[in-house]
Design a protein around this nucleic acid. Sequence first.
DNA 1: CAGTATCCAGCTAGATACTG
DNA 2: CAGTATCTAGCTGGATACTG
Lengths: 147, 147
Amino acid sequence: MTTTTAARKRVQAKAEYDAFLAQCPSRKLLDRIADKWVTLVLAALRSDGSHRFGADCAGEPRPMRYSELSRLLAGVSQKMLTQTLRSLERDGLITRTVVPTVPVTVTYELTDLGVSLHEVVRGLKGWAETHMDDVLANRATYDNQVA
Amino acid sequence: MTTTTAARKRVQAKAEYDAFLAQCPSRKLLDRIADKWVTLVLAALRSDGSHRFGADCAGEPRPMRYSELSRLLAGVSQKMLTQTLRSLERDGLITRTVVPTVPVTVTYELTDLGVSLHEVVRGLKGWAETHMDDVLANRATYDNQVA
DNA sequence: CAGTATCCAGCTAGATACTG
DNA sequence: CAGTATCTAGCTGGATACTG
């Protein structure tokens, strides 16, 4: 029964790793994926690139070029973008495809694993945008009470 | 119609803030919440404190003492824990309650806003634990191809 | 117990310059 | 176009010591 096996495997994985433990590798992985640039890159690769609002979380993962990403993630440095992309590629979350045109064309695209992570991190970007006003209000209140 | 108003307000908030933009405050907020310690603190305050596997994401938010959090988030320094708790308190995600016993007792508890963020970040911790093996395998493959 | 205060090593991330 | 390489300011976070 594949279903039972898959379910058991998932439970075992859950039991094997625990990010509450300092030495657990999943703690480090959590640190990697809980990152602003990771979140934005994944969101970008799922957007339609038009940068219309609500354009993220579109149906299909869309391949994007380095320069497109660079433009969409406003203000990101080349270093951070490259670093983030390499890290995501190494972890198997995105693929990097080089087309030998002149000049060379490089596209990045989400893998299935990358899509699965995007499902969870897209909530982060959305939450920040949706609750920005609440948080701002709470900060004002807090800072007033302190001062 | 409160429903329409609330819905419109949410749409406006979405349109108002966009984390893709460098100057947007939601970019900074995203940076704050996309954090390892934030994720673990929120997960802890939703766990039953027993640190049984799968104990996070329990039904009720549970108040926890500083020392309990310190023990559960293995390896966290006092500085980081305090810093994270203050930041979460300021943003209105948790409450801090001081009971004047001797010595003093301090408990932290999720607010409704905190619970709503936990809903999204608990996926991060779970994803890291569930897909750790996949990522490890992908890294091995990648490092082999490079070397 | 639940912090605060201070110091400092080291990493991060931006800026800048250069390249196949 | 899609990077790499280098330098550095400054921030992060750990260690340590002290307190109501």
